[in-house]
Simulated scan of single mutants.
Amino acid sequence: MTQATPFLMFQGGAAQPALDLYLATFPDSRVLHVERYAAGEPGPEGSIKVARFVVCGQAFMCSDSPVKHDFDFTPSSSIFVEFDSQDVLDRIFDVLAEGGRVYMPLGDYGFSRRFGWVSDRFGVSWQLSLPLSA
């Protein structure tokens, strides 16, 4: 079966702390599989070679790149999450904003009842929305 899965490449050993944050923050989230670098492999021993996980029911993959790149995450690519509870949206926005960057503070921008756009402390961009119909 052909399937597309969002893939997050972290640098400097950030994959595990990011994974921990997402699993502790979002509902319906869990690890499916983690493969770690062993001694003598290209990445630091114990860092994530590849992980498969679920956030809000959506499958993702991530890794710690053993190669230092001159690029990182950009807000132009983001993860869009729709909520059915303003309290949950607000809590998750606050968690992601801690140590991150707010692009659009929580508010009513006309296209949803409540919306906020933030990059977390790892640089991953999130758009959080409470739809008009929720």
Rank of each mutant, 00 (worst) to 15 (best):
G110I: 08
R121S: 10
V118F: 00
E35I: 11
D120A: 07
S77C: 07
F7Y: 15
S129L: 06
A59Y: 01
V67N: 14
S63D: 00
K68P: 09
R91G: 04
P44W: 02
K49V: 03
V31H: 02
L89H: 07
F71G: 02
R52A: 11
E82Q: 13
F71D: 04
A24W: 04
P66F: 08
C56H: 04
A4E: 04
A15D: 06
R91V: 02
A97S: 13
R30T: 06
P131I: 11
R114S: 09
D108Q: 13
Q11C: 12
A59Q: 07
F111Q: 13
S77R: 04
M1H: 10
M1A: 14
L89T: 07
S85N: 11
D90T: 15
I48V: 15
Q3A: 13
E41W: 02
E45V: 07
H33D: 11
D72I: 02
G12K: 06
F73Y: 07
Q127N: 07
C62M: 08
R52V: 06
S76K: 03
A18F: 02
F73L: 05
F111R: 12
L19A: 05
L130T: 00
S65D: 13
S47W: 14
F10G: 09
Q16S: 13
V67E: 15
L21E: 00
F115N: 07
D108W: 10
R91A: 15
P6Y: 00
Q86D: 06
I48H: 12
P44V: 03
Q11R: 12
D70W: 00
S119G: 13
K68A: 13
E45F: 07
F80Q: 09
C56W: 02
R91F: 02
A51L: 00
L96C: 10
A134K: 11
M1G: 14
V95L: 09
S133P: 10
A51F: 00
F122R: 10
F53P: 01
Q16R: 15
G43I: 10
I92A: 02
A4R: 05
W117D: 02
G43T: 06
Q16C: 09
A15P: 05
T74G: 10
F53Y: 04
G99F: 06
S47M: 04
M61C: 01
P75V: 05
P66R: 03
G99E: 08
S85G: 01
S85F: 09
D20P: 08
P42R: 08
H33S: 14
F111D: 14
L23V: 10
H69F: 09
M1F: 07
S112W: 07
E82F: 03
G116S: 11
G99N: 06
D120L: 06
L32M: 12
W117V: 01
R101Y: 12
G116Y: 11
S85D: 15
Q86G: 00
A38E: 12
L19E: 05
D28H: 08
E98Q: 14
A38C: 02
D28R: 10
I92H: 08
L132T: 13
R30I: 01
Y37F: 12
A38I: 01
F53T: 00
G43A: 10
I79A: 10
A39K: 11
E41Q: 12
S47H: 15
P75N: 12
F10Y: 15
P66N: 05
F111P: 10
K68G: 02
G40I: 03
P6A: 04
V50L: 15
L32P: 03
